[in-house]
């Protein structure tokens, strides 16, 4: 046993200097390595976040040097603000539609492009290009397409005799939000398509061969071979889509400015309006806090499922 002890001690002896080094830093060593990143994190995320939380409890106008502490007054006002109700409804619609539609279209395109298709690289590029275009450019392009008098959409409808379907797409409450969602779907389809395409190529062909031998139809293969094989990709696509949906601001701001009236306001644009335009920074920050809390509540199940998966 002594021999064994000596033999075990040898490698330990060679590691001694390292051990000493570890002792020098002690338990703080990992924190020292993390310090630069932590400083950036605290300065640019934690500090502004905490100060925002504080400002949500004040009546700060966003310009003056002074403000008063008002407790939870700003939060108490939220339920009686009619625009908040509109914004919450719009956020829900936006989240559901812009997660489901691009994901389904992206998956369908990925499956189509995974087969024997001519011009696959070009098609891939065509479908992915909108994702890399600047959002303001997309908003301008679609703004012109939607122009009620000269836009391509109404012109085409009139050309084929469907004059009755020509609408002021961005100029009426009933169509404005849906009209903004179309370009959002257009630009967000490419990313899931690429992820699914990569994931599809990782599913072993033998699984499909075995399923074919077992007499599985194409539809059964899709549900019992393809979909389970895409599970990790689903997580990534859904998580990123969810984050994207909560961040909605720019498309609305650039295309409708929250209008007509307040018909396309979402929580992000309403927060912006209050903080930056109405000089109600305290109230606007309270909206930001609420958005954040909802994002966390929705995000936790995903994070839990991911950690469970990892362990």
């Amino acid at each position: 046993m002594a021999t064994v002890a000596i033999a075990r001690s040898k490698p330990g002896a060679t590691r001694r200097p390292a051990k000493k080094g570890a002792k020098r830093g002690g338990k703080w060593s990992p924190w020292l390595f993390a310090l630069p990143a932590l400083v950036v994190y605290v300065a640019f995320l934690v500090y502004p976040a905490v100060s925002s939380l504080w400002f949500s409890l004040t009546d700060w106008d966003g310009l003056s040097a002074t403000y008063n502490f008002v407790g939870l007054d700003n939060y108490a006002k939220l339920p009686s603000d009619p625009v908040v109700a509109t914004a919450v409804r719009n956020n829900l619609i936006w989240t559901i539609v812009t997660i489901i539609v691009p994901t389904v279209i992206g998956l369908a395109l990925a499956i189509a492009l995974n087969g024997k298709v001519h011009g696959k690289p070009i098609l891939r590029m065509v479908f992915y290009t909108p994702a890399v275009l600047p959002l303001v450019s997309i908003a301008s392009i679609w703004g012109w397409l939607y122009n009620p008098q000269y836009g391509a959409i109404n012109s085409f409808l009139r050309l084929i005799g469907l004059d009755g379907l020509a609408q002021p797409w961005l100029g009426q409450d009933s169509t404005a939000l849906w009209a903004v969602m179309v370009p959002a779907i257009w630009l967000r389809t490419g990313f899931p398509m690429l992820l699914y395409l990569a994931a599809l190529q990782g599913i072993p062909n033998e699984l499909y061969e075995a399923a074919t031998v077992d007499g599985a139809s194409r539809w059964q293969q899709f549900w019992h071979v393809t979909m389970p094989g895409l599970r990790p990709a689903h997580y990534i696509v859904l998580a990123l889509s969810l984050i994207d949906s909560f961040k909605v601001f720019d498309m609305i701001y650039a295309m409708t400015y929250g209008g007509p009236g307040t018909a396309t306001q979402v929580m992000g644009t309403w927060m912006y309006a209050n903080v930056f335009q109405y000089y109600q920074a305290g109230y606007g920050t309270a909206i930001a806090v609420v958005i954040t809390l909802v994002a966390i509540a929705v995000g936790i199940p995903y994070v839990r499922s991911q950690t469970r998966e990892a362990s």
Binding site: S52, V275, I300
Partner: peptide
């Protein structure tokens, strides 16, 4: 991981609001 992710989400959400507070 859960805590840090939540904190990060909170940080991003809130810090987007009033950077000028200081």
């Amino acid at each position: 991981f859960l805590g840090l992710t939540s904190a990060a989400v909170a940080g991003v959400g809130l810090s987007a609001c009033t950077g000028g507070g200081a």
